[in-house]
Design a binder for these strands. Structure first.
Lengths: 275, 275
DNA sequence: GTTAGATATTAACAAAATATTAATAAGAGG
DNA sequence: CCTCTTATTAATATTTTGTTAATATCTAAC
């Protein structure tokens, strides 16, 4: 029989959340940076690449597998974003960097322990600004986008020692907005459903590049237009034409009186983000 | 002392989620439609408007307040989207309509009972397609966007009897992507933090209008270009020029041999979504 | 009937944005 | 000083978008 309450306060005094089935939540972070030969200890090319931070699990479940940094939400007073920041600080000592909520993943089978819903965050940083050492179980992996069409996405992650190959099938879900359901075809190459988080994050970054200034979160203070263009090209995975690129970017940056020399060709002007 | 496990299976056998603090989750749905005089029982104008579905709470907390349809996630096997669909079916008997995850709201104080994290979904529908009656505690509210600048958003919701005035302060959070934190300035005009969900949803819809065909989810099968243009104008909250609009939309629709007459002016051709 | 009012539809032109090609600039390194 | 490489910009073609205005065809009022 339902008890009749006379006020919100009276109702709340009686309420016990343990009367209901509950669950756990985590916040996972996709930390993306641009790497080049200076910040890369195994490649000998001059190419820029995207790289993401992975952590090796030293406990069950998925013991020994790589995964995104993440951790359980403390339900007593902590927000998911605070949780994400706490984890990020622990792994990289980074604070005050660009962070945005990406998506909430909730496949009931995504965690073998119990029902765990995960809200993922995307964070962008310029790796070179990382002065402190990152946690010893964490490592940067270069990202190579092998394939990205309407049927599938294929990504290879590599740190020079380990190589992780991710393959995700796309199933058209909604024609009007060209949305797809992503179905992992990986057999525990990476822990949990973090392959889906990575793919969703790379796509979000690619989209935001076109209509925001998000890119400057992963640039150093001073950069040449050539460097900036390479970053765009790496993220978009295609060549851009110089004059077109310069027109688009012109209003966002301002020329400094510094120059970058010693590169074996005509020196280029250094720019900085205007704003 | 930490126990040493030899396999994933052995570890899982010992794992008890109740050893940790847990929480509850809900899925909330922002159902948006376009209303006009035919589907509106109190306005006598010919204008199209956006309208959203609200539900009156008949239990504590927030007893008697309006809120978005939503419900608790069943942690045993139900996904958040399944939960959203279940609630939507209960309130409107609608199935198979456009649904997309909007954002996860997790302010620890958003629910006075206990820690409840809510993942919100946006759903679009053409109200006229609703053949079944909606639940008796549910009601369509017309949406009037009074103000939307870099400092604040103001929205009025009205069903002819009740009027709900929402005011939300914006605080710039991130310059590069022009993102804002939304701070509710409402004193329980609407239950929970559903004012934030509404504002986030309206903004998402406005953005998606520009680069997707999302609008056709709220259109009838056959429509005139004038009607379609009005829907754009209502959502974007501004006038559009005819030839420009027609050029943009031309590739997305196809002319049928039907005409719409009886409107007191030159008849217009009926179009349908191509795809 | 005739005319006014309303929106539909398209033509025509102007302006702005974008794409493309190619010319010129200037340090590094032989 | 010659070649390589990338930087930078000029010049032009093409496409897209903005604007104005002309014409079409219905309903309703007179």
């Amino acid at each position: 029989m339902k008890k009749e309450y006379k006020s919100e306060a009276e109702f709340l005094k009686d309420y016990n959340p343990k009367d209901f089935e509950q669950l756990s939540m985590t916040a996972d972070i996709l930390l993306i940076s641009i790497s080049d030969e200076e910040t890369n200890n195994y490649r000998k090319t001059n190419d820029k690449m995207m790289s993401i931070l992975l952590v090796k699990r030293d406990d069950y479940p998925f013991k020994g597998k790589w995964c995104l940094p993440g951790g359980f939400l403390n339900p007593v007073g902590e927000t998911l974003e605070e949780c994400a920041k706490r984890v990020l600080k622990k792994e990289t000592n980074l604070q005050d960097i660009y962070l945005e909520q990406l998506y909430t993943f909730d496949n009931p089978k995504r965690d073998p322990r119990t029902r765990v819903v995960s809200t993922s965050y995307m964070a962008l940083v310029d790796k070179n600004k990382l002065t402190d050492m990152i946690n010893e179980n964490a490592c940067w992996f270069d990202v190579v986008l092998l394939e990205d069409n309407k049927k599938e996405v294929e990504v290879t992650l590599s740190n020079g020692i380990d190589t992780i190959h991710l393959k995700i099938k796309k199933v058209l879900r909604e024609k009007t907005t060209d949305r797809y359901d992503f179905i992992s075809e990986n057999n525990n190459e990476i822990a949990f459903d973090h392959d889906l988080v990575i793919v969703a994050g790379l796509e979000r970054l690619r989209n935001k590049l076109n209509y925001t200034d998000i890119v400057f979160n992963m640039m150093p203070k001073y950069f040449t237009l050539g460097e900036l263009q390479k970053v765009y090209e790496v993220i978009l995975n295609k060549k851009l034409l110089d004059p077109a690129f310069r027109r688009i970017i012109a209003g966002k940056v301002e020329k400094t009186n510094k120059m970058k020399t010693g590169e074996g060709h005509r020196p280029s002007a250094l720019f900085k983000y205007k704003g």
